[in-house]
Write a protein that binds this DNA or RNA. Structure first.
Lengths: 205, 205
DNA sequence: TTCGAATTTTTTGTATACATTTTTAAAATA
DNA sequence: TATTTTAAAAATGTATACAAAAAATTCGAA
């Protein structure tokens, strides 16, 4: 049996609650009551409490309520993404090894043909690999922390099949492969801006 | 009596433990034992536990031990600072109103003549005001989260009286005042790089 | 001695009870 | 009816007890 067969309850709770938020089972605005969740998950309030605190730190919960990110929130997050992921793309153009470039290419290929879920995963992986090329754990952590909210957003984008999204990914990779740092950064920023614009436009309906 | 006269114990604990870490009473590497801290602070383990979790999220504690940031950690943090504070300085050149510019000027003036503690506060305030000019709460939050580790660092820098530090602040403000966004960003990045270099050089002794 | 198994001690994780605070609902007054 | 007061309930914060896990120590054998 694996050494990790047993998982502390509070970690398990954290993941369960997080998933409930991300898949919409706990929609934005819902008040999280410790006792109710405890009963639902079959544990005491203690681990639930810790989970909620952690989710609060991550920004998915605010004042015991599930966050419903506003358009402004999204703008702010994307501003940070453009800075940090743009920088990461620039690094990738200098540092990323061939094997990783191959993996990035696979993400693009898979995303072209997969189901919605597979495409979402592949697109996330695409960004993750580039962020990791920054070789800066702080940057990785910051982007990771925003991931949850980005996730809620990305779901909508892929669901509506934003045109050119995957082509843009390909262009970014091409720039990285030809070690054109300035182009990689610029293309990444434009790509994120397009994502954001598309999303904001959707909100108009 | 004010409505906030009473403070939840876990908030109080958080602040006390945090201060103990920042002022060196709990030096890097120290193992934090819930029960001992609880006794020391005169509360039960419950609020202490929550405080530790929060400090873990903030990066001041890792695996129950007080973090001792490595040179690499510092490099990574400063890379992020250069990106985000550089951007903020750029924004400041466009958006910062005159009243705030005045406040920034005061920070510089105070820092020139104050004691070590006053100078530290003023320098922190200088950076805070510029970060706020980004008008992006995400950026403010990220920088704030790094503040604790930055604080430990800044203490050393001011203690050893890095030359030109305040002059550089003045140059940045001048660029902001003349609405030269590119210069503001460049000067801020150079300033942070100089800070980092100075610190790394100190470490060589 | 040195290594490793076994045991003790320490520390953490969880449940539960109770106190305090906040929220909600109800009643009473203008 | 609207608004404030008061009472009720619900929810959170805290302490404490116990169980499980991790760490430290002891002991014996090579």
């Amino acid at each position: 049996m694996s050494k990790q067969a047993f998982q502390a309850a509070y970690i398990h709770c954290y993941e369960l609650i997080r998933d409930k938020i991300l898949n919409g089972e706990l929609p934005g605005g819902t008040k999280l009551v410790e006792e109710r969740l405890a009963e639902e998950l079959g544990v005491s309030r203690t681990p639930v409490r810790e989970s909620i605190r952690k989710l609060e730190q991550e920004g998915l919960i605010q004042k015991k309520r599930v966050v419903q990110p506003s358009v402004e929130d999204l703008r702010h997050i994307f501003e940070v993404r453009m800075l940090l992921e743009g920088f990461s793309a620039r690094c990738a153009a200098s540092y990323m090894d061939e094997a990783t470039q191959e993996k990035v290419q696979e993400c693009i290929t898979i995303a072209r043909e997969g189901t919605v879920d597979i495409t979402m995963d592949a697109n996330k992986q695409f960004h993750d690999l580039i962020v990791q090329a920054s070789r800066n754990p702080e940057i990785v952590r910051i982007i990771d922390r925003m991931q949850s909210i980005i996730y809620l957003f990305r779901r909508a984008v892929v669901y509506y099949k934003r045109p050119f999204l995957i082509d843009e990914h390909q262009h970014i990779l091409d720039a990285i492969r030809s070690h054109d740092a300035a182009a990689a950064e610029r293309l990444m920023k434009e790509h994120l801006q397009a994502d954001l614009d598309f999303y904001l436009h959707l909100g108009k309906h």
